[in-house]
Design a protein around this nucleic acid. Sequence first.
DNA 1: AGTGGCCCCTGGCGGC
DNA 2: TGCCGCCAGGGGCCAC
Length: 274
Amino acid sequence: MPELPEVETVRRYLERSGAVRAPLLAVDVRWPPMLSGVTPMALQRSLKGRWIERVDRRGKWLQFIWNTQQTLLVHLRMTGNFILRDAGDPPAPHDRAILYFKGVQLHFHDTRKFGRWIWTDCPERFLNHLGPEPLASEWAPEEFYRQLKKTRRCIKSALLDQSVVAGLGNIYADESLFRAGIHPQRRADRIAYHRVRLLHAAVREVLADAIRMEGTSLGGGLTNFRQLYGQPGKNQPQLNVYGRNGSSCPACGGTIRRRVLGQRSTCYCPQCQH
DNA sequence: AGTGGCCCCTGGCGGC
DNA sequence: TGCCGCCAGGGGCCAC
């Protein structure tokens, strides 16, 4: 489940790969409904002979900036991933699109078909609604506090709202709340400022640690996050609560509980989080 | 207008 | 052993 750290990991690998600044030979969109703003044929016409200048990230969005200054926005959603393959390698099952460059192929693999590609001259139109980047220095606890004051939802739901802060998903929202000692069901607008400061710091630490570990890969199934070359991330041992329902809390030894909040499964320690 | 709920998909797995 | 039904959760959209 790619969240900010997994998307950032893919971005960093892409930047160092042979797919950047190499002329595109062809693009094969094998699942056209994933495309927005362009047909497969028109995309091929726009990209052929051009190259990717750089790859940026905003929240969970990847931005492929082409030398024409146009942008291919990619959202991995639940199971999307990029895999780098050698020239001539055939498509694998669930490969939804392939970018062919000289010497290398970039395969977009997406089992559940939730991933989206948007071809646009104006990426801001699709990114404007996003809240601040949690790892940017401009993101201040005061602003976070103001955002949380505006909503009566529980803090878990507020953390998943990309307009409050961009990039958190279910795993890192649970982990951030655990690190800050805040109960996921607590109303967002009723958290004291000093505790919002703790949560602000926790979000940053959890995300930065996960990026350092190159993301979280759960289980061994096809749907799980893999790096550009197929290796899993290494963040799993850092998880304190996510997916650990019934296990003991690493801080107090109590039992981790699970409940459903806003249609999302939520894991927390009833002793440590209040 | 903010918010809860449903839906899109598919593979893996628990239970019978 | 085999099959059915549930579960995973990001985000768009709809209804209240």
